Amino acid sequence: CHSECLGNCSQPDDPTKCVACRNFYLDGRCVETCPPPYYHFQDWRCVNFSFCQDLHHKCKNSRRQGCHQYVIHNNKCIPECPSGYTMNSSNLLCTPCLGPCPKVCHLLEGEKTIDSVTSAQELRGCTVINGSLIINIRGGNNLAAELEANLGLIEEISGYLKIRRSYALVSLSFFRKLRLIRGETLEIGNYSFYALDNQNLRQLWDWSKHNLTITQGKLFFHYNPKLCLSEIHKMEEVSGTKGRQERNDIALKTNGDQASCENELLKFSYIRTSFDKILLRWEPYWPPDFRDLLGFMLFYKEAPYQNVTEFDGQDACGSNSWTVVDIDPPLRSNDPKSQNHPGWLMRGLKPWTQYAIFVKTLVTFSDERRTYGAKSDIIYVQTDATNPSVPLDPISVSNSSSQIILKWKPPSDPNGNITHYLVFWERQAEDSELFELDYCLKGLKLPSRTWSPPFESEDSQKHNQSEYEDSAGECCSCPKTDSQILKELEESSFRKTFEDYLHNVVFVPRKT
């Protein structure tokens, strides 16, 4: 048989008469490798580009789960590009990614509803959504962080984005990388972005840091009482949809009607710091009717980097990364020049730590249904340095008659930039024990000054392991946590139920 035959053949030295091919099969003959313009397919066939392209389009058009959109890589027609490569849609070739590779997620039936953290986790790592997304989240724990972890990498949506009755959302900033909504599939009414009845939605994105392009379709905003109209108009300008909307697409009466839409800028007039305090004062603000001013709200939190936005980490279910302080308005003076500047002394802060701070007014709604208010920009203030805590785990070892090696770990709280350490030492008198000992005694162990690591005695271990207080009263049991108490109650309830079950099964009433 021919060298490319495997198993047997019907005619000697003829690659077209093989029972099976050793390498690849091409047009009725066995070959060692697939010549151009053919590609290896499933490690035994040679196919042309049209064959591989037909497989790709067949799966793409069917949208069946589990099928493969075949691509070409290293002269092979394979189910998908290997790690580190992405497909070129024009020629199906796998090309190296520039940075992290995109991950295209194809949605069944063309859309997916995100109504819980669990459903959001199914899209973790996706960068391109081939379909439409509907966000409908009523509640949950730590929602802002969970949504950002699972949806934060999405850069492109081919269909539309719909935010509907998501009472738990305060902001859409968890879509931190969303840059493009194509609108290839539109919501009824030709809408590519749809926001309806979101009672706590206050911000779409921080438009000073976020760009969003909507290729096709219109915007729809109705019944978002805490979303200011200025935020919607800003989205029109940034996304390129200005002029597409009709009169009733953006409701003037049901958007922002319960919001404090600040239209003035508060400026800080005085800032002073110490290692654990920050004193702030800002310019006074009074609405047209000074009785509408209820006070100020001061927001602050630790910020290692200057990239904080107002609604980071917030949701309507209680999660809030900001510390909020309510401040009463100052006494009002008739003389504008003698107006008191409101302020606040922030206490209990960490030394040498940068804080993000902003302040906003708290006002009631005027009778004319106009909203007044003022808010400052987010500023960054760093507390002063102070003395560091003591170095940890000092170790001293003498390696000769004239040297001592000293080692330690950095302090747990540096409280500033540590530039150097101060080492103090003092000579001590020799131990009298060394002169009084009889060095001729056998088995004498000389006193040693070398360091030995501390260890816990058996008594201390027994005390720590004991669940009861000892007789001397030195140790006591740790208080039980809520989960331990709940577990004990469940076990007790189970024992009672099981005992009742045994009584009912074992003891049967005697027939009379």
Rank of each mutant, 00 (worst) to 15 (best):
L392S: 12
Y305I: 14
Q245V: 07
T127G: 13
P288W: 07
Q258R: 07
E122V: 06
Q203T: 13
Y223T: 02
R247F: 12
L123E: 01
V381I: 11
K350F: 09
R165V: 08
R291F: 00
V363G: 05
I135P: 00
E283S: 13
Q245A: 11
I378N: 02
S321D: 04
E156W: 07
D384G: 00
V170C: 11
S398V: 04
Q403C: 09
S119V: 01
P394W: 03
D249V: 12
R202S: 09
E187F: 07
E264G: 04
I157M: 07
K350I: 06
W352T: 04
P351H: 05
N248Y: 13
I137S: 05
I114R: 01
L153D: 14
R247H: 15
L161K: 00
N334Y: 13
S173L: 08
L280F: 04
P410F: 08
Y194R: 14
L201Q: 06
G343E: 13
Y223A: 06
L219W: 05
L219R: 06
R165L: 06
F296D: 04
G318S: 15
L204Q: 04
D393W: 15
P410K: 00
S402H: 10
N340R: 04
G313Q: 11
S376K: 04
P284L: 03
R202V: 05
I137L: 00
N263G: 10
K350W: 07
H341F: 13
P394G: 04
F175T: 04
Q306T: 14
I378V: 05
K234L: 09
L153T: 13
S116R: 00
L345P: 10
R179G: 11
N190S: 13
S260W: 05
T241Q: 11
L186N: 05
D367L: 04
L406T: 02
L265E: 09
S171A: 07
Q258N: 05
N224T: 06
L201T: 05
T127E: 04
L204S: 08
C261W: 04
S192F: 03
I154M: 14
S400M: 10
L108N: 15
Y191V: 11
S173V: 07
P342M: 07
Q258P: 01
L219F: 09
A251T: 14
L178F: 09
L161D: 00
E231V: 03
W207P: 09
F175D: 01
P391L: 04
N320T: 15
S166F: 14
A149N: 15
S319N: 05
L345G: 02
D326V: 06
Q382C: 12
P287M: 05
E148C: 08
K112Y: 00
L349P: 01
T118K: 12
S116L: 02
N200V: 14
V238E: 13
I271K: 15
E246N: 15
I188T: 13
E122I: 01
S274A: 08
Y160C: 14
F311Y: 08
K409V: 11
D384F: 09
T323N: 14
C126M: 02
V238W: 06
H106M: 11
V390I: 15
E187D: 15
T215Q: 10
L180M: 10
L229A: 13
L212R: 01
T353Q: 08
H210I: 09
D384S: 06
A195E: 02
F268C: 06
I163M: 11
F358A: 11
L107D: 07
T127R: 14
K407S: 14
L294W: 02
L212Y: 04
R179C: 14
T383N: 00
K177L: 12
K253Y: 15
I379E: 08
W286C: 07
N399F: 14
Q403L: 10
Y300S: 13
Q339N: 14
L161H: 01
T353K: 03
I357T: 10
W207N: 07
P330G: 07
G152I: 01
N211M: 09
S274R: 13
N150L: 05
E187A: 09
L331A: 14
A168I: 08
Q354R: 14
G373M: 01
F358G: 13
I379M: 15
L180D: 11
L252C: 09
C228S: 01
I181A: 01
P351E: 03
S269A: 08
G110S: 10
N307T: 08
R138T: 01
S338Q: 12
R272F: 14
S239M: 09
L180S: 11
L349R: 05
I114N: 00
Y194P: 04
W207D: 13
F311I: 06
E264R: 07
W286N: 05
L392M: 14
P284E: 11
P410E: 08
F220T: 15
R165H: 05
N150S: 06
K226L: 03
L293M: 06
D326M: 04
L153C: 14
K112Q: 05
R124L: 08
D326I: 14
F296Q: 00
S321L: 08
F174S: 05
P288M: 08
D289Q: 01
Y380I: 02
S321A: 08
A374V: 02
D249W: 11
L169K: 02
T383V: 05
L178M: 14
T371P: 04
E122K: 00
Y380M: 06
M297Q: 09
Y285T: 02
R182I: 06
F365V: 12
L180A: 11
G313S: 11
I188F: 11
E236N: 04
L108K: 13
L133E: 02
K350M: 08
K267Y: 15
T383P: 01
G318L: 13
Y194E: 15
V324L: 06
K162A: 00
P287L: 04
E310S: 12
T309P: 13
Y160V: 08
H341T: 14
L172G: 03
Q339A: 08
S116C: 15
E156P: 01
Q403F: 09
E264C: 03
D115Q: 15
T113R: 04
K301P: 02
E264T: 03
D315W: 15
A259W: 05
G110L: 10
I134P: 00
S398Q: 09
V324G: 01
Y223C: 12
Q216K: 05
G131I: 01
Q403P: 02
G256W: 03
Y372K: 02
K277Q: 15
N340K: 14
I271Q: 14
L143P: 04
A144P: 06
C317W: 12
S333W: 02
R247A: 09
